[in-house]
Design a protein around this nucleic acid. Structure first.
Lengths: 144, 144
DNA sequence: CTTATTTACTTAGCCGACTAAACAAATAGT
DNA sequence: ACTATTTGTTTAGTCGGCTAAGTAAATAAG
């Protein structure tokens, strides 16, 4: 599975260089295409990354003028992230690229098989999540 | 699938900190446990990583005294990588950890389902590899 | 009202991954 | 024999990921 993930990563990376993006930046943009003006905390949550990682990514994306950060008017602690025109513009090319890759990945698999594979992935994800839960709870226990 | 890979990574990482290893270092050590004294090129090939990545990893593992590099006596360009006693010693804890995680991942899946899942993964891996092939061949074509 | 705590984000520093470019040693061409 | 090329590794610099520690603003507690 690790090999699959790595091979996938390599292909995504190669495809993204044509759009002048680095790997990881595309899924951040995808969240914004779905909902613009998100808080950094919301973004970090949806991407399952830590806040410091997000800070760096945002500053780089801001440098390439794909997005902008604005302070919230209600709460001065909060920064909201907005797409620029350039950021909105590259949506189609990236989603096309993504759909293409999805199709090559799942070639030679019937729709039943794809569904089954998806079910397995969900099961495994749940297993991992519950393992993480029990792990962190024992850690909290040790803290007392 | 990306979420699964990421969740997996998080758990591996948490487990490895107990053994004082960083993620990625364990699979490098696994290759050496299987065959000691490998060339850096061989190692990079087996890990599917680029030589510069390996150089850094090795220098860090050498700093923590888990392995040593020696120049080949036949060919002065070649460096061969050998485990130290400390490097050999942590084999059991890591493989145990790995087997444990494998079991938690695949919980609630029958052996038939596991086999099927494995088949899917192999199919997808092949798809990715052939896509990479066609991609690099068009690139070579463009170079002429 | 003043202090403590929580919340949102940033900075510093480490690691794995990459590319591009350099370097050194062995081999091939002439 | 001397140059050119290939092969093996390293250096420099970028990016995504993390933790630990810090800052600033909002809220809770006294």
């Amino acid at each position: 599975m690790l090999r699959v993930a790595k091979a996938h990563r390599v292909l995504v990376n190669a495809a993204l260089t044509n759009v002048n993006l680095h790997i990881g930046q595309e899924i951040l943009l995808m969240e914004l295409w779905q909902e613009d003006g998100l808080t950094q905390t919301q973004l970090a949550d949806r991407l399952s990354i830590e806040p410091p990682t997000l800070t760096k990514m945002l500053s780089r994306l801001e440098k390439t003028k794909l997005l902008k950060k604005y302070k919230d008017t209600q709460d001065a602690r909060i920064c909201r992230v907005f797409l620029t025109e350039k950021g909105s513009a590259c949506q189609k090319s990236v989603t096309d690229l993504w759909l293409d890759l999805d199709e090559t990945i799942l070639a030679n698999l019937s729709s039943e098989e794809r569904l089954l594979f998806r079910r397995f992935l969900i099961q495994i994800y749940d297993n991992l999540e519950s393992a993480k839960q029990s792990q962190s709870s024992t850690k909290n226990f040790a803290d007392n």
